[in-house]
Deep mutational scan, measured.
Amino acid sequence: DVEEQIRRLEEVLKKNQPVTWNGTTYTDPNEIKKVIEELRKSM
């Protein structure tokens, strides 16, 4: 579920933690925001 994935990513973003997405680890909050944007567009 895309909305659930977005929620999880936003939680990680709030905690300022790195997130691994599709085999890539993002540590930059701006990169994580881009991933969230892409997910929103795909909905």
Rank of each mutant, 00 (worst) to 15 (best):
Q5E: 11
I36C: 01
M43I: 15
K15Y: 13
V12K: 15
L9H: 00
P29L: 07
E31K: 04
E10T: 07
M43Y: 08
Y26S: 01
N30F: 12
K34I: 06
E4N: 07
E4H: 06
K41D: 09
E4S: 07
R7N: 08
E3D: 08
S42I: 14
R8I: 15
T24D: 08
P29W: 06
K14I: 13
E31W: 03
V12Y: 15
N22V: 02
W21F: 13
N22H: 07
K41Y: 10
Y26I: 13
K15G: 11
I36F: 03
Q17T: 10
T27D: 12
N16E: 09
L13E: 01
E3H: 10
D28I: 03
N16A: 09
E37R: 05
K41I: 12
K33C: 08
N30A: 14
E38S: 09
T27E: 09
D1Q: 10
E4D: 11
L39D: 00
K34C: 09
T24W: 07
E37F: 05
K15H: 14
T24M: 14
V35K: 04
G23A: 02
L13I: 11
E3W: 14
D28M: 03
W21Y: 12
R8V: 15
E4I: 06
E37G: 04
T25G: 02
V12P: 02
E37T: 06
D1E: 14
N16D: 08
P18F: 07
R40D: 02
L13F: 07
I6R: 01
L9D: 01
R7V: 05
K41T: 11
L39I: 06
K15R: 11
K41C: 03
V2F: 11
T27V: 09
I6V: 04
L13K: 01
M43Q: 14
T27W: 10
E11G: 05
G23K: 02
Q17N: 06
R8P: 01
R8K: 14
S42E: 12
K14N: 12
T20F: 14
L9E: 00
V12L: 15
E37P: 00
E3Q: 10
I6H: 00
Y26C: 01
L13D: 01
V2E: 03
P18V: 11
K14D: 09
R7H: 10
T20L: 13
V19K: 01
S42D: 09
K15Q: 13
K41V: 12
P29H: 08
Q5T: 14
D28K: 04
Y26Q: 01
P29Q: 08
T24H: 15
T20V: 15
Q5F: 11
R7L: 12
V35M: 11
T25H: 09
I32E: 00
N30D: 14
I32N: 00
E4M: 08
S42P: 06
N22K: 06
T24A: 08
Q5D: 13
K14F: 11
K15F: 13
I6N: 01
R40L: 10
V19W: 12
L39E: 01
L9V: 03
D28F: 03
K14Q: 14
Q5C: 06
E3P: 06
K14V: 10
K34G: 05
Y26H: 03
P18C: 07
G23W: 01
D1P: 08
E3M: 14
K14M: 14
R40N: 04
E37D: 14
L9M: 09
E4A: 09
E38R: 06
E38Y: 10
L39C: 02
K34E: 08
E3R: 08
T24Q: 14
L39W: 02
Q17A: 11
M43K: 03
K34H: 09
V2M: 11
E3K: 10
